[in-house]
Simulated scan of single mutants.
Amino acid sequence: MSALTSVARISLCRTGVGGVLGQLPGASAAYGRWALHRRDVGGVFSGCFDSWHEAIAAIPAGRLAGWDNDAAAAVFRGPLPRQPSVYAAKFWLSQLLRPGDRVLDLGGGAAVTQRLYTALASLPERASWTVVETPAVARVGASLADTGELRDVTFVDTLDAAGPCDMFFSAGAMQYMPDGLDVLVGALAKRPRAIVLNKLPLSRDEDYWTLQNFGPAVCPYRVWRRDDFITRITDQGYALVDAWDVAELSCDIPFHPRLCVPMFSGLTFIRADAATY
């Protein structure tokens, strides 16, 4: 990204200048047309909405919506990402996983974290890893497994098919789901011993939806108020034992400086009655 582009992004997304410009007639609509129709960009945000339904209704006609389509799923046939925050997640997996453990990876793509983890260390003996994905992404993962590119991982397209787990893991996926946090809280009824979450857009004060154009498609995107998100989990009998910054990711929405999330978050929780690790 050029210095000029960086300055423009900061001005529009993180300062009062953006808020003022957003009041100009037609400015937000013109930006939305540019941001949501392009297919040669990724990670571009537009708009602020009160609900998933309101956000998805704003996706332009002719654009694919969400991750359950072949164009979006093809993203996972590319090279593995090299993001610094992955190492914090891998640290906690290495500390918490035990022989025979079952890992449920919600929205794990083509087993991205499992592949990065096993490139450096072996899973504990008899440990299993199940990725829960959209049907389109699960098909890509299964096809890579069939060719031998993936090992020791199972792909399913419903939580029920995954069954109970000892470790609930998710990295950068819950924000795309209409009920991502509720899905997590519901899964806690089965009492996994530990929860490791990475690449979460958590805001100090705001809770809202926006739209993200990630290239092949456009998707509603949830930002949670940090304290509320954490409380929903600790109220289920879990203790927050670590949190880290994900400096490589941010949520910048032009004309909405108060909604800026300058860096994402990672969180690790341990069930209160299983707090030793």
Rank of each mutant, 00 (worst) to 15 (best):
R193F: 00
V132G: 05
D146L: 11
Q83C: 14
R77C: 12
R39H: 11
A8F: 12
L93N: 01
A110V: 00
D157G: 00
D228A: 03
A275N: 07
P164M: 01
L96Y: 04
E54R: 10
A121I: 09
L197F: 06
S265P: 06
A29K: 13
D101I: 05
M167Q: 06
S203Q: 08
S85F: 08
T268G: 07
A55C: 11
I230L: 11
V153D: 05
D40Q: 13
G62A: 04
R222F: 09
V153A: 05
A145H: 08
A27E: 02
G43A: 14
P60T: 12
G163C: 06
L12D: 06
T276I: 09
M174T: 00
A275Y: 03
R115N: 05
R14D: 11
G22M: 03
L181S: 08
A110M: 00
A73K: 07
W52M: 08
D101K: 10
A243V: 10
A145E: 00
V140G: 03
P178I: 03
V7F: 12
D227T: 01
K199Q: 15
D152R: 11
A35T: 07
F76C: 09
L200H: 07
I270C: 07
S128L: 10
A138E: 00
D227R: 04
F269M: 04
Q114L: 15
L159W: 03
A272D: 11
R151Y: 03
V140P: 01
V196S: 01
A194F: 09
L96I: 01
Q23A: 05
S11E: 13
A29L: 00
A71W: 04
D242T: 02
T268R: 09
T113I: 15
V41W: 15
L144V: 03
G163N: 05
G62K: 11
R63F: 03
G163L: 10
P164W: 01
W34P: 02
F168T: 01
R204G: 09
D242R: 08
D68K: 15
Y208A: 00
G141M: 06
T231W: 08
A29V: 10
L120T: 08
M177H: 07
D242A: 15
Y221F: 15
A136I: 01
P178R: 11
M167E: 00
Q114Y: 06
K90S: 13
R204F: 09
P192E: 01
W52E: 08
S203E: 01
V153T: 02
V131D: 06
G172R: 09
A161E: 07
Y87H: 14
G148T: 04
G237C: 15
T147P: 03
A121T: 13
V17A: 14
R33S: 12
P124I: 14
V75Y: 13
V86M: 11
Q175N: 15
R271S: 00
L181E: 08
A187N: 11
A136M: 10
G186K: 10
S46K: 02
P220W: 02
T5D: 13
A275G: 08
L4C: 02
A58I: 05
P216H: 07
A72W: 03
L106K: 09
A243N: 08
R77F: 11
L184M: 14
N198D: 15
L144M: 13
G107M: 12
N69A: 11
L181D: 04
Y31M: 05
F255Q: 01
V153W: 06
R191F: 11
L184V: 14
G18A: 03
A61D: 13
I230N: 02
A71E: 13
